[in-house]
Design a protein around this nucleic acid. Sequence first.
DNA 1: GAATCCTATGTGATCTTATAACATTTCCAG
DNA 2: CTGGAAATGTTATAAGATCACATAGGATTC
Lengths: 172, 172
Amino acid sequence: MTTNVSSKDANNTRALGFQRHDHAACVTEALSSTDAQCAVQGLRLTPVRRKVLEFLLKEHRALGAYAILDLLRDAGFGSQPPVAYRALEFLVENGFAHKIERLNAFVACAHPGQTHSPAFMICRICDTVAEAQSGLAGNILDSAAQATGFQIECTVVEAEGVCPSCVDKANA
Amino acid sequence: MTTNVSSKDANNTRALGFQRHDHAACVTEALSSTDAQCAVQGLRLTPVRRKVLEFLLKEHRALGAYAILDLLRDAGFGSQPPVAYRALEFLVENGFAHKIERLNAFVACAHPGQTHSPAFMICRICDTVAEAQSGLAGNILDSAAQATGFQIECTVVEAEGVCPSCVDKANA
DNA sequence: GAATCCTATGTGATCTTATAACATTTCCAG
DNA sequence: CTGGAAATGTTATAAGATCACATAGGATTC
């Protein structure tokens, strides 16, 4: 199990309570590795799509479609909802981003390239979203599905709570 | 682990692929047991709230807030969104119903009275929603949370796929 | 290199889901 | 029976998502 965390502040080095990283490099690397992966798979990472991914990577927390739309407008792209939704659809379909159902918002994938059923931890204080990676979504669902004959095609696993950095605030 | 299933048809005895039950009795029992529980806990199961719960129990699958609103209007209650949303808020807060984040819709709880972190299986063919009951939401999240110090307050666990009754249709 | 087709983008309109704000009523405690 | 809290009703609007159709870009075929 690995864990990747994103937070609100825009610093290069982010205090995440449990993980720090050079964010500028993280964005750059993610973008170029996505370029490479798309080239291999014959996917078209067009300017809008790449820009949306860049927004998600930069913010590094869940962004609503309309927040993305505002950013797109500022960047000179079309500003009607379908522009954002279509780019997001491409990113989600191809595993470069995920939708957080609980928030009706989107995050960049923390483990692109690997097929996975992600699980998310959402801090209700700072809006940080951490993606937990694991082989299978697992447990309850798997055993329930096996018991009943239900065929799982995709899973939503999200936890809302307080991240380590915010525990103090929460108890104050 | 127990499993409770709901389906689209309105028959008394429902073919659920894995479980049949007398639905009329199921609704009546659930309502009166909710009455009792509210009396004990000092909760006010007002007419609107009780009616919304009845709708959810009768339909026995996920209903959108505006579908509920239509039913409320037909039943002579207020027909503005907050009427439905407030009733749903009460039911969800007190564990008599759950929101299915994936569908932006609501279902009656299949295990009322027990504190639980439910998991749902949603059939994309027939819209059936089954609630799997288990002690804890489980491992990925738990282990990720433990590893990072994240404090889970509530969980969303939903699987979308094909229920046993629809497998044939799905493969056709 | 032009014609064609498929994919992607732009745009306007519309639909669904959800909440804010405030007035009115109901219920219960004192 | 009255004052305050909780619940309901209603208007308006915010937020999220999709449909339908026009236009533009890229690749393939001739």
